[in-house]
Nucleic acid binder design. Sequence first.
DNA 1: CAAAGATTTGACCGTCTGGTCAAAGCGACG
DNA 2: CGTCGCTTTGACCAGACGGTCAAATCTTTG
Lengths: 204, 204
Amino acid sequence: MPDDAGPTRIQARNRARILEAGLDVFSTDGFRGATLDAIAGASGLSKPNLLYYFSSKEAIYLALLDSLLQTWLDPLRALDPHGDPVEEILAYVRRKLTLARDFPRESRLFAGEILRGAPQIEHALAGDLRDLVDSHAIILSEWMRAGRIARSDPHHLIFSIWALTQHYADFDVQVRAVLGDERDAWAEAATEVEQHFRRVLRPD
Amino acid sequence: MPDDAGPTRIQARNRARILEAGLDVFSTDGFRGATLDAIAGASGLSKPNLLYYFSSKEAIYLALLDSLLQTWLDPLRALDPHGDPVEEILAYVRRKLTLARDFPRESRLFAGEILRGAPQIEHALAGDLRDLVDSHAIILSEWMRAGRIARSDPHHLIFSIWALTQHYADFDVQVRAVLGDERDAWAEAATEVEQHFRRVLRPD
DNA sequence: CAAAGATTTGACCGTCTGGTCAAAGCGACG
DNA sequence: CGTCGCTTTGACCAGACGGTCAAATCTTTG
């Protein structure tokens, strides 16, 4: 196993390769469906070589989930409590949708993990995630109290944003099957989702 | 293999047992993660006995998906073109949410299949599903043209309903982690989702 | 360039998994 | 009660899978 003290150039490159290949394989086949041979093949490394850089299949998966969760939470962190409420929330929605469009594999990997009961990251959900959501729910509450956005439960408002934006990444196949190949799902999603939340947020 | 001509009582009972156990196992572990041994254990039958009733692991999975898809589409079929637009759509939303609450395993099985690219039911998506959605999109379009609900893209309106209702079933773990154990996620979801779509649908 | 360390690999192992098969149990019916 | 067809199962198999290991190769550095 490589020493943490001095990660060489080779180590950095190969670890990155493995994670990239792992993302590909895990996001399409799930944790159990993925095989070390598949990841080895996709990364261009031999199987024992994989296990030289990561102690097990699970270690690769965990490394992916870990870096993923941060990327996933960042857009919410960027929400500015002092900005214009509707525009701040819409900007968050846009960031989330862009993320879903540009990183569908990450989105699906995360979705698969949650779907199966989040055995590996339940603690992160009940910890970091919950804290972050709670603190932003307070901001939303204040905006609602001030009459600047429509009143609703702030937690469920956040859920609705997650649900809608992730839907286009996670259920991509279904979306495309229904819309047909000639329509540009992502372009439409961008305008429709924005309009959707403008309606939801507009104070009565 | 049992003859299709005369399904005996034993056959009906055991097939039902297998499907029930299969639903349990497939919905938590996914197709690849599920094992025949696990299904055998959960159903109380021996592994070779499973394969006496279904020709393969895939056959069990397909039988589940097949019956599932119908259940999943029924609520949309029940939408009445001659009823009150807002109430009809809200009734659909409620049916969907109830379905998600009462049949989370089915919901997750379906979600997992789509997530992995729907290898087994892509044809059904591009066929039955698409046709059904298209025909109802027309109804929605007419309601919009008549000014009875807010204007938007009808397909994306349907997506938003699916996204929100399924979110509570498929991402149950995340929802509960964020809300905490003391809150009743489903009860809140019912009122919040209804309010959400009243806003989305209300004509300007 | 030689030694030390980092990296890579072919061969291998124990276990799990989907599936087969022949034989045994069992229930209905003449 | 015997027989015939439906049902059930223990034993087994071939391939896949996660992981190990000792040996080989390549890099770095004194």
